[in-house]
Design a protein around this nucleic acid. Sequence first.
RNA 1: GGACCCUUAGCCAAGCGGUAAGGCACGGGACUGCAACUCCCCCACCGCCGGUUCAAAUCCGGCAGGGUCCUCCA
Length: 444
Amino acid sequence: MKIFNSYTNQIEEFISIHPRKVNMYVCGPTVYNYIHIGNARPVVFFDTVRRYLESLGYDVKFVSNFTDVDDKIIQKAIEENETELVISQKYINAFLDDLNALNCNTDYLQPKVTEYMKQIIEFIEDLIKNDFAYDVDGDVYFRVDKIKDYGKLSNRNIDDLISGSRVDINPKKESPLDFTLWKKTEVGINFDSPFSNGRPGWHTECVSMIDNIFHEQIDIHGGGMDLQFPHHENEIAQSKALHNHSLARYWMHNGRLSFKDEKMSKSLGNVVFVKDITDKMPLRYFLLSTHYRSPLNYDEESFSMYVKEWQKLEMAVKSLFLKLDLEKQYNDLIEIASPEILKEIDNFNLAMSDDFNTANAITSIQSLIKTINQSLRQKTNYNHLNQQLKAIMYMANILGLKIQLIPMNSEDRNLYEQWQSARSSKNFSLADELRLKLSQRGII
RNA sequence: GGACCCUUAGCCAAGCGGUAAGGCACGGGACUGCAACUCCCCCACCGCCGGUUCAAAUCCGGCAGGGUCCUCCA
């Protein structure tokens, strides 16, 4: 298993800290709005990472947070005349709905900032105690120049950052690079602390949660490329300050998604919400069609290609299952022994093991679809068909592409037979009617 | 102003020094009660100009075009 590590800027063999166990953390959403398809990219990708690692036999402890304390949430709460809690809960629920629709595993730890306030405050206190942070009139800042390798993750040097820094000239800060750990505030939700009444800066929550949940360096920390700087850089700085390690062994960053070659972001307002995409599986397919570190562009034309490809996959698998089910020959306990099928699975796994090259993994799926379709129009023995079905379901499952296989009940069977006999007796209007029914039941 | 990335057929997209995977669309066949689906065949010398090398889409330099970060953003 090879993973590109943003921290070292190279592809490395993945070795977990504890045998057969992977601790991973992915930066989650700030819950002030519905998620758009760009937000969905890391969500889907890291869900796929988890699935693949689990298929390799790792026990994966997956954690992803909810940022439920933030200026934007406060602003939204004021706009809608609601409490922050109501706002964040609403969008947390919406987020979980989207995850389910995208067939992402939602069974993982989802810590919220509000639930970790005590730990976050303690974390900041420790930083102050160790002289890595300083309190100015109730605001607390992190002293960046005390961290030797600051900039390593995002490949930049401190001098460039200082000379390039603009706008934000905060006289309270010792250095423009110092970042806020705690912000004294009167507006919106705020919390008691030894520093002041206020709320934590964004960069501390993840480190503090990781600290409290895992109690040690974790294996994988993931998130969008845009979080690399300053967010992840700052997480690393804090971790080095208190624990003298880089928080995670492997840092993984997915590339951004653009919309018609323009940046898609909530602030620009050109967003496509996940909830508004009717075809969620094609969306997942689309998000995995390009290697995760490459930029991905969304527009209706290219997305429609993936709708087609998805339908092709779904239809082939359904037809295959139907054939086996009709003859009562379906057997999911079968062992895959065919050399060609094993080879295809092998290719798939090789692609996935190569820094999660889902684009190439999909190629294996497409290739198997082709041979399935070929088999279906020939007389192929059931054993082989069962092997093909098992193989394609294995691949689809790792990519999280959910294909519903609906076994026929006696009524379905009856309909099917009537359809066939209507066809052979050339009663086409009846045949079409029955065909429609079967299709509505998801059988064909 | 500083840092950095990308450019492969009409479109999407692999490749990362050994002579262009795959998919969609198009075109030509086949199958078919009609649709849909499916199958077979066909479809590029890799932005441009130089250099390194026995060998370059792959390495180096320049140019052109596009994009990102340095500020909230997955």
